[in-house]
Structures are given as C-alpha cells and as structure tokens.
C-alpha cells in the first residue's frame, strides 16, 4: 500500500517536473499552474505513503536510506509549497521538483522493506529529532535552488539585452528575500535537531556529545550556516555572495545527510 502510494506520488512529481520545465522554456502560465497542481497531488499521495508506512511499521519510517531520501523529498516539497503559497514563485518549482525527483528516482534502486528498530532507536526523541532535521534539510535545499536561480537571473541582468529567461525568473529582491526567509527557518530547525539529538544520545548512551562523525558534521554544517547568517545580518552580505554561500552550505548539508553515512563510520548507520 505504502509503496503504491509512493510510486503514484513519484509519478505525480515527475509530471510536475515536466510541466515546470516546459514553463521555464515556454513562459506559459498554465504550465506552472499544472506543475503546481501535480506537485500538490504528489505531496498528498506522498504524505499518504508515509502515513500508511508509519501504520504498518509502528514507528516513524525514517530508518533506512530509502525512507530517509523519501522523507527528505517530502520535507523539501513541503517547504517549497509553503514558499510558493506565500510568495508565489513558480520558477522555483522548475528547480525544486527536478531535485526531489532525482532523489526519489534513486530510492527505486534501494531495498524498500521495513527494517526493525534496534533498541537505541526506540526513543521518544526520535520523532522531533528526525522531523526537525529533515525540515531543516528541506529548507536548505529550497535555499540552494533559490541561490541558483539568483545567480542565473543575475547573469541575465548583466547582459545588455536580457534573455527570455529573465522574464520567467523572479526579481533579485524576491529571491534574496526568499533565501533569507528559508534560511531563517532552516537554521532553527538544524539547531533543534542537533540539540534533541544530543538529548537523545544522552539518554541512550549516557553521553550528550561524543564527536561521532554525524554529530560532528551536523555541527560543522551549523557553524557554516551560523557564519552565513552573520555575514548577512551583520556584515550585510547579500545577493551574489550570499547565493554562493547558500550553495556551499547545501553541499555541507548533503555531506552530513548522505556522505557521512556512506563514507564515514559512526552511530547513524542510516540516512
């Protein structure tokens, strides 16, 4: 049941990706509206997939890499839909949807069975830790997309005659504002994730911080985003510089999320 819902959701996201990409090259508003409709449909199905899997497993299904990637995509779409609802930037979809679709297509190659929980994972902290971590990842993913759009748009503006793309991408101010809003959401999420994780570690292993690679990398990412927020708020770095930082920050997020589990050894064997 959950796998079926998941595949339908993926199909809807793929359709949305196609519509959003057509929007980007054709400038037809109707395409963006179709993209949005399919994204919402996909999101509803995806939510249903996660809920049914939750019911089947009896625990929040974010254990295996398959589940983690799926939850990452879900959180990213959620943040995107909120942004789209609040400031209506359809071209953001042309970047967010391909990104999430790629991560979901990758899950098709992974084992999708429900894994049992080892004793350390059976904790009340797991829910809030996982959800805040992934909402943070989702927000940083959206900020990454906004940064890419910003750089593209900036290049359009530098030309003597702006290309067709110029008219489809939002203004630089809108993008900068969006980036800041999304980072201001992602950073507290990351902070809460790290702290609840350390509270959990304290109850499970008797040590609130043990410099395990995942812990350390989440702290590294926290340092990077803390530095970024300070460059913006206090040193006034905006626009292009801020966009490069948002892209670099997201690379750190991705390494924390996937790289650590795949390349380094530690307590988090899952995504």
């Amino acid at each position: 049941m959950n796998i079926l819902c998941f595949k339908l959701a993926l199909a809807a996201y793929l359709a949305a990706t196609v519509f959003y990409l057509i929007f980007l090259v054709s400038m037809k508003k109707g395409m963006a509206r179709m993209g949005q409709a399919f994204t919402i449909a996909g999101f509803v199905l995806h939510t249903a997939a996660i809920l049914t899997r939750y019911a089947e497993a009896g625990h929040l299904p974010v254990i295996s890499l398959y589940e983690s990637l799926s939850f990452f995509a879900w959180a990213t779409i959620l943040v995107f839909l909120i942004c789209d609802y609040r400031s209506h930037i359809p071209s953001l979809g042309s970047f967010v949807l391909p990104l999430t679709s790629i991560s979901l297509i990758y899950t098709l190659a992974l084992p999708s069975h429900i894994e049992p929980l080892n004793p350390a994972l059976q904790s009340a902290w797991r829910g809030i830790h996982t959800i805040s971590a992934f909402l943070g990842y989702g927000a940083f993913a959206v900020a990454f997309c906004a940064a890419i759009i910003y750089l593209l748009q900036e290049r359009q503006l530098k030309r003597k005659k702006p290309g067709a793309l110029y008219y489809r991408l939002p203004s630089l101010e809108t993008l900068d504002f969006l980036s800041h809003k999304v980072l201001a959401f992602g950073f507290p999420c990351l902070t809460i994730a790290i702290i609840t994780g350390s509270m959990w570690a304290s109850s499970a292993w008797g040590s609130y911080w043990s410099w395990d690679p995942k812990e350390t990398w989440s702290l590294i990412t926290w340092f990077v985003y803390a530095a970024m927020i300070h460059t913006r708020v206090a040193a006034g770095w905006r626009g292009k510089k801020a966009s490069y930082l948002a892209i670099i920050g997201f690379l750190f997020v991705m390494f924390t999320f996937l790289g650590v589990s795949l390349l380094l050894k530690g307590l988090h064997t899952y995504g």
């Binding site: 410099w211 690679p213 340092f223 990077v224 530095a227 300070h230 460059t231 650590v260 380094l264």
Partner: peptide
Amino acid sequence: SIKLAIILLISLAFTSIIGTV
C-alpha cells in the same frame, strides 16, 4: 568584531572535519 566571529566559525567548521576523516 563580527569578522572575527565569522572567521572563528569557519575555522571551527574546517578543523572539525579533520577529526571525522
């Protein structure tokens, strides 16, 4: 200075990487 804060945060980030490698 805020500059020092940013430099310190970045230094902490990069030196922390060593311990994970």
